[in-house]
Design a protein around this nucleic acid. Structure first.
Lengths: 189, 189
DNA sequence: TGGAATGCGTCAACGGCGTTGGCACAAATG
DNA sequence: CATTTGTGCCAACGCCGTTGACGCATTCCA
């Protein structure tokens, strides 16, 4: 995108790069998307990507995030919390930008991506849930609920089980909610 | 490794490449291991790798496999099957070659790797388990048990939760077994 | 008002990557 | 002996992420 000499000082290119990166990363994953692809999609020189975002990894971390949508995820009544959490998370991942989780998993070889995913999970699921659980091993049970969530997302969007992905979501959620609830409920009650 | 002109006709290099690849892939993952690294570790020319195994992906699929260890995984009594499956799988992944699952997940961008993992899971967990379950939605419940397994392995070895990995395995397995059992038990019973 | 500093964009190049084709040589085959 | 086959080596290809030098417009400041 060549622009005249009287162009504004702000960076239009920066937003174009972000948009192209978000689209391509979500669709083709981290290693399936090259810096040159992103630059071409944004109509920009490849070197500009690294100039603005430091590196391909920096751009990935700046665009691939799920933090904003999961506030108050574990706020419902405890007796139906398994179903509530599942509905929120799965619905989010079925919508646009659902490739984000798969893209993150595909880039876990990068330590910063591992840290990002771990922090997201801790902040929105494990931490708040552990504070709400009663009974023994609340922290352990909350972490295992996080593992269960990762497992379902994994089987739906990362290494998809076709039979599972094709079933009505309500059936899948109902059954899996029982498994989550087995860890949410106080085992001594 | 230069060898004299009277070398034996069989392929010593092939086994050296396999061994180096298994070690390096399990430790550093797919994209963290280069063909040139493997060749150097085997004392061999990089071109030999592709000559014998077709491609880096071919070598990866030939060396990274978990099939052999999971026969009869779901054969125990139904009432304690959750605990039995977990113990087998987690013990296997804690031992040497435990990096295999993480390596596979890190290479899921390759369609053949996705197919390999899906087939392994279907063959050793989902299929046999679905045949043993009673009650409604046996197939769905078996698939969700597979998702739970992936989730725990994910949180232990792919994107490790330090708090979880550090706990005594028995506590973790006991708690998670309840969650698996919630899907194994007939929900109408 | 003139000069330095800053930020944006362009271009060419670097080293590393997976992969390929050509060549050499020993062993097996007729 | 001639051919084919398997094995190994070397040089090179195109793509990758990344970097440094440079041009240019704008802004800041003495």
């Amino acid at each position: 995108m060549r622009r005249g000499p009287g162009r504004p000082p702000s960076s239009h290119a920066q937003r174009a790069i972000r948009a192209a990166a978000a689209r391509l990363f979500a669709r083709h994953g981290y290693s399936g998307t090259s810096v040159r692809d992103i630059a071409a999609g944004a109509g920009v020189d490849p070197a500009l990507v690294n100039r603005h975002f430091g590196s391909k990894e920096g751009l990935f971390l700046a665009t691939m995030s799920v933090d904003e949508d999961f506030r108050g995820l574990v706020d419902g009544p405890l007796g139906e919390l398994g179903r509530a959490i599942l509905t929120r998370v799965v619905t989010r991942m079925d919508g646009p930008g659902g490739g984000v989780f798969a893209a993150l998993v595909g880039a876990l070889a990068l330590p910063e991506v591992r840290a990002h995913l771990a922090r997201s999970t801790d902040e929105h699921v494990v931490g708040p849930l552990a504070r709400r659980l009663s009974g023994p091993d609340a922290d352990l049970r909350a972490r295992l609920v996080g593992a269960q969530l990762h497992g379902l997302l994994f089987s739906l969007h990362v290494s998809p089980d076709p039979e599972l992905a094709q079933r009505p979501r309500a059936e899948v959620l109902d059954a899996y909610a029982r498994a989550l609830q087995a860890l949410i409920d106080d085992p001594t009650a």
